[in-house]
């Protein structure tokens, strides 16, 4: 079982991990335009979601933003 730590919780993927951040967001149904993503404390720019490969064991923070201010 492949595991990513997402927002502090282990998420298991049977078989293969989503290959990229873009794929992960698709699996989780997260809107790319309103999320801030970090891998192991490093920001991943929205434009690089498709080119950012994921590997098992990474710590991922996905901050979903909602409107209002």
């Amino acid at each position: 079982m492949m595991v990513l730590k997402i927002n502090g919780e282990d998420k298991e993927f049977a078989g293969v991990l989503p290959a990229t951040m873009k794929e992960l967001l698709g699996v989780l149904k997260v809107d790319e335009a309103t999320v801030v993503a970090e891998i192991d404390g490093q920001i991943i720019r929205k434009d690089n979601f498709g080119g950012t490969k994921l590997t098992a064991g990474q710590k991922i923070e996905l901050i979903r933003l909602v409107g209002g201010g």
Binding site: A33, T34, V36, K46, L65, G67
Partner: peptide
């Protein structure tokens, strides 16, 4: 929300 994303990123 998109503006928040832009600034944080």
């Amino acid at each position: 929300a998109q503006s928040k994303q832009m600034l944080i990123e």
